[in-house]
């Protein structure tokens, strides 16, 4: 369940997950707002007014979650200027999930990248991956069991960070 430092990283890994499991992956956006300072119940009105002046504090967490493999990729921010860009990313991912043509081209590109990563992961899997799904899977090799393949996929993304 990694939190990514950069939204670009989140986008990249989310698109990989989405390409692997387009129909079960969902993307949630949580916008939470809370007072900047919590007013105690027994506070005087002046104190309460002062606390209210502090305003509110909000944050935004975007999560890509696939219930089948249990992979969950997150990005958190509290900057207002990122909202536009993040929604654009959501739109981009939605386009891929919907199977739009632009998304397919990117998927093919991703597929190539994925091929490279699989080799890399094959080596990494030997070095003690959790869960015992250490079968190095390449795009050409048939997966031993589909669920195990999926699990490996999720872990692969977790292992990257």
């Amino acid at each position: 369940m990694p939190f990514y430092e950069k939204s670009e990283d989140w986008l990249h890994h989310s698109s990989l997950l989405l390409a692997a499991r387009p129909s079960s992956t969902r993307i949630t956006t949580k916008y939470h707002l809370s007072p900047a300072r919590r007013t105690p119940k027994n506070a005087t009105p002046e104190q309460a007014a002062e606390d209210a002046k502090k305003g509110v504090r909000g944050h935004l967490v975007i999560t890509t979650f696939d219930p089948k493999s249990g992979a969950s990729l997150k990005y958190k921010t509290s900057k207002a200027q990122e909202v536009g860009r993040l929604v654009q990313m959501l739109g981009n991912l939605a386009g891929r999930a919907a199977g739009n043509i632009a998304g397919e081209q990117q998927q093919q590109q991703l597929k190539k990248e994925e091929g490279g990563q699989d080799v890399e992961m094959g080596e990494g899997a030997g070095a003690g991956e959790i869960g015992g799904v250490a079968t190095p899977t390449t795009a050409s090799a048939p997966p031993v069991s589909q669920q195990a393949g999926g699990g490996g996929k999720g872990k692969k993304k977790k292992g990257k960070r």
Partner: peptide, 14 residues
């Protein structure tokens, strides 16, 4: 749901 299958065949629009 085969992850490799879905990579090789284009996704039907939904």
């Amino acid at each position: 749901e085969d992850p490799f299958l879905s990579l090789s065949t284009p996704l039907p629009p939904a």
